[in-house]
Simulated assay, not measured.
Amino acid sequence: MAQVSLSIADLGSICIHLSSFLRSSEVARSEEAGICSKDVARFLWRKAAMAHLAHIPIWGPSGNFVIQQLLDSGVQGKAFLRELLLLRRAVFPPKSWCPAIQETSFSNLKVLPCSQQAEDTDSQAQQDAVVPVEAAVPLATGTRLGQPLAAGMELKAANDESLKAEDVSSGFCLGVEICAGHADGRSMSVMFAPFAGLCYMQYGGERCVMCATVLPPVEGTVTKLRAWVQVTEEGGLFFLRQDPESAKIEETGLIPQEALPCWKSEFFACMYFWRDHLLTPIMSTVIHSGKTLPGDLPQLEGSHIEVDTTWHLTG
């Protein structure tokens, strides 16, 4: 018996009802099976893309501007979903921060120490006034409480030489911006300095910082260092440190959701830079962003063993 593909004319308003509960994976399977015609598939993909967009938080004006550009240019359906996947790894530092913090590609940053940002004192002072002491560059899209989030960054020297712990110290952190929601200005930064092995917590707008040692400092030299973060469905999170040239992966342990603000609603993976701690220019690249960590990472315990450390107040 020949298979019949259902068209929009055949389905009528049923298309709208179908689009309200079909996920992208289910639309893909129905399209592959030839259950629906091309026009129905396009309609379902458009609805799936808009439904997906409605459920992901976008960071800042730049991210929203890119989304609006895509919509205005007629990108929709599967093509729009592909663009959203790319935006997971996109970073948009302010143009005024260049050259101190410069976007070299959509997912890559070059960061200069304060001592190397400018040759003359006046220009350096002007740049210091523009770039904040703690410069945060979140990824363009995040997640909401109840949906997991995982991200990975790779750090190396801009001149491709080896790095020691003291070259970076706490000058680079991978972390998570925890926000209360669009209409609420409360936020918290949870940061992990992979070279120093320190973890920090800081409420938005506050000078005081909670600090804890979660791993020993990096020993010897490395050509690259990777840092990973996983936000769990419950709202807890943990970090990993990896030397890609060895099989060694170190876990910080879980910061449980009870240790984080009760108002947490949105989570954005983020890179943080204290340029006065850097001794050499660095390159930071977003190598992964998704719901889970890459499958090639070994079995991890950090998701269920709580971090065992003492926090103290600094700042």
Rank of each mutant, 00 (worst) to 15 (best):
A136D: 14
T143P: 14
H52V: 02
P244C: 04
E166A: 10
H288P: 15
W228V: 09
K264C: 03
L71A: 02
M188R: 10
A183W: 03
L112M: 10
V168H: 09
R241L: 06
E251C: 03
Q117F: 09
C114F: 08
G290D: 15
H288N: 08
S289M: 11
W59V: 05
K38F: 03
L6V: 00
V231P: 13
A227D: 06
Q147H: 13
H52T: 12
P132F: 02
F192R: 04
R275A: 01
L198R: 10
P99T: 08
C15I: 10
A33E: 11
E266F: 01
G181Q: 05
F172I: 05
Q124H: 11
E154V: 09
F192D: 04
A41M: 07
A269W: 10
L53Q: 04
L149N: 09
S107R: 14
G175T: 13
I249Y: 10
L70I: 01
G146P: 06
G34V: 09
R186K: 03
S96Y: 01
R23C: 08
C270Q: 15
M210K: 12
L109C: 07
A9D: 15
F192S: 01
L237T: 05
G175R: 07
I16Y: 08
V131F: 08
S189R: 11
F65N: 12
T292E: 11
N159A: 07
H17E: 14
D39R: 02
T223H: 13
W59G: 04
E32A: 13
E206Y: 07
A247S: 15
G146K: 03
Q68I: 02
A100N: 06
D72Y: 03
E32I: 08
H277V: 00
M153E: 13
L87K: 10
E32N: 12
A135R: 08
S265Q: 12
P294N: 08
G253E: 06
A151G: 05
H277R: 05
A33Q: 11
M191W: 14
T314N: 09
D276T: 06
E233M: 08
R82G: 07
R275V: 00
H277D: 11
G146A: 00
G12H: 04
T143G: 08
S30L: 14
L198V: 01
K47H: 12
E234M: 09
A196P: 00
A54Y: 13
A41E: 12
R88T: 05
E161C: 07
W274F: 13
V176N: 05
E166R: 15
W311T: 00
M191K: 14
L254S: 01
L237P: 13
V130K: 06
D120K: 12
V137T: 10
V168S: 03
R89A: 03
V229D: 09
S303L: 04
F267N: 00
E83A: 13
T141Q: 11
S170K: 05
P99S: 06
F106S: 14
C208A: 15
V137K: 02
Q126A: 10
D243T: 03
T285F: 09
